[in-house]
Design a protein around this nucleic acid. Structure first.
Length: 297
DNA sequence: CTAGGATCCTGTCAGC
DNA sequence: TGCTGACAGGATCCTA
């Protein structure tokens, strides 16, 4: 799905466009995609949009909230005076809606919010606002990289000694926000091979990785996420992290911008993984002479 | 407890 | 053309 930067991009967009609007009606096209009773949210006003990791919380008046998780292929498309679309990028962003992938349609006072989701892994769930933080998913989330101390991160890596570092980065209960794109990009920036065991990273490496995670996600959020967040807005701007900033993700066969070696793709932790085989060594760097393995390039 | 694999679902693409 | 298997920007459940 949409990883943290994309979800944050959606949050900002919804904050601008749907807050203060009233829910007029809700059409559920796919039962699996909507958990709750439609009558509990119709007529309520949207007060606030929050985010926990990759989960979006829409607070309504009367102490009711919606939790929205896009998982792999979810998208939220607001169609009002302008169209604001974000989430899993696809032609749906500019298509006529509803369409085959539309799962829930929320009609608002001044526009319509479409929840599309090709694979139906995502969902919208109705719950009392007071219970959001008690939700099993929310409760288990770890800190986001910006809020995590290096000691905390290093200790977590030690705790998951034998797991691939990539698997660790994808585990939201260890560190929250990264998904397949930003895990690959962060590992590339930090020059760490995704198949290294978490326990064998030394502290300077862990620090580089944590910093890289913040960096790649900051960059993406600033550009509106990797998706075409503002696709149809008048200014024509669009978020295009993959085009503009990604160095390895979906770049297999292309030259590494750092060393020129050919980027490869292989399966790691059950996911397609992009690596520069030269910059990202799959064994511990035993180069002598430099203390603690710190290399300043 | 951790680690790894299967699984939910639809759609697309490469290879025969 | 039609079929088949692999794979996909996530998270959970099951097993060892």
């Amino acid at each position: 799905m949409p990883e943290l930067p994309e979800v944050e991009t959606i949050r900002r967009g919804l904050d601008e466009y749907i807050v203060k609007q009233k829910i007029v009606s809700v059409d559920v096209y796919c039962e699996k995609s909507f958990c709750g009773v439609v009558g509990d949210i119709v007529g309520r006003k949207i007060e606030k949009i929050r985010r926990y990791g990759k989960a979006l919380i829409v607070d309504l008046d009367g102490g009711v909230s919606l939790m929205i998780h896009l998982r792999m292929t979810g998208q939220l498309i607001y169609d009002g005076e302008t169209r604001y679309a974000a989430g899993h990028p696809s032609e749906n962003f500019v298509a006529k809606l509803p369409n085959k992938q539309t799962r829930v349609v929320i009609k608002l006072s001044d526009g319509v919010l479409y929840f599309n989701d090709q694979r139906k892994f995502g969902f919208i769930k109705v719950l009392p606002t007071a219970r959001v933080e008690q939700d099993e998913f929310v409760k288990k989330l770890a800190k986001e990289p910006w809020d995590m101390s290096i000691d905390d991160f290093y200790e977590k890596l030690q705790r998951h000694q034998k797991a691939c570092i990539k698997a660790v980065l994808l585990d939201q209960t260890i560190i929250c926000g990264l998904g397949n794109i930003y895990a690959d990009e962060a590992l590339y920036v930090a020059k760490i091979h995704p198949e290294r065991r978490a326990g064998e990273l030394d502290k300077p490496e862990a620090e580089k990785l944590l910093k890289a995670a913040c960096e790649v996600m900051d960059e993406s959020i600033e550009s509106g996420g990797s998706t075409m967040a503002t696709y149809v807005r008048a200014d024509g701007t669009k978020g295009d992290y993959l085009e503009k900033f990604a160095k390895v993700f979906r770049k297999e066969g292309l030259a590494c911008p750092r060393c020129g070696a050919k980027i490869i793709k292989k399966r790691v932790a059950g996911r397609g993984t992009h690596i520069c085989p030269k910059c990202q060594k799959d064994t511990v760097d035993t180069t002598p002479a430099v203390e603690e393995g710190v290399r300043n390039d």
